[in-house]
């Protein structure tokens, strides 16, 4: 890979630049959905105030944010232990969101029941899918880095870490807009 023609140009690892650009495009994708959520914020605010459990979600959010730290350590030290912990935190977060969903669905909120349902489930659901993908990546890395073949290279560790940071960053935005948003206005 790095023995490519562009000897002088290859200062950076192309894989990581690729991941960075991919994350850029993903950010634009979420931007679109967030814009939609904000457009309809007013209409949904009442329900949001009434239905959302800010407190508990905050706790699970902290777990996810913490996982940004653990993946950092994991990548820096190529440590599978930290990697596993990261995955655990991710799972915990998804579990938390599962509880939230269960409660809301129990209360009769659906993507089709009202505008808030539409925007809430779309935005948080899309994020959840990304967390899920992240978990799969973490799992694969956990396995491959275990193999003696040493197949999980620098790019794998760093790239997956970057992606995981991104998933967290998105949640910072989503949590602020959707949950903290209910505290103001």
């Amino acid at each position: 890979m790095s023995a490519r023609a562009g000897g002088i140009a290859l200062r950076r690892d192309p894989n990581l630049v690729g991941v960075a650009l991919f994350i850029a495009s993903e950010s634009v994708f979420f931007l679109g959905v967030v814009i939609a959520y904000v457009t309809f914020r007013e209409q949904g605010l009442a329900t949001a105030k009434a239905q959302l459990d800010v407190g508990r979600t905050a706790i699970f959010s902290v777990l996810l944010f913490a996982s940004s730290g653990t993946i950092g350590l994991a990548a820096a030290r190529r440590s599978r232990a930290w990697l596993a912990l990261t995955a655990l935190l991710g799972v915990a977060f998804l579990a938390g969101q599962g509880l939230e969903y269960a409660r809301l669905l129990g209360a009769g909120l659906r993507p089709g029941s009202e505008l808030f349902g539409t925007t809430f489930f779309t935005l948080t659901g899309l994020h959840a899918v990304h967390v899920l993908v992240g978990l799969v990546l973490l799992a694969t890395l956990l396995v491959t880095s275990g193999l003696r073949t040493g197949r999980a290279g620098h790019a794998a560790w760093e790239g997956i870490a970057m992606y995981w940071h991104f998933v967290d960053a998105v949640w910072v935005v989503v949590f602020s807009v959707v949950y903290l948003g209910t505290l103001i206005g």
Binding site: S25, E26, S27, V28, F29, F30, L31, G32, V33, A36, F40, R110, P111, G112, E114, L115, T118, T119, F121, T122, L126
Partner: peptide, 20 residues
Amino acid sequence: PILTSALVMLLVDRQLGGRF
């Protein structure tokens, strides 16, 4: 990606009864 997100929203409207 903006198109993709718009398409996802349209899909939600069409398949999950969304109202975007």
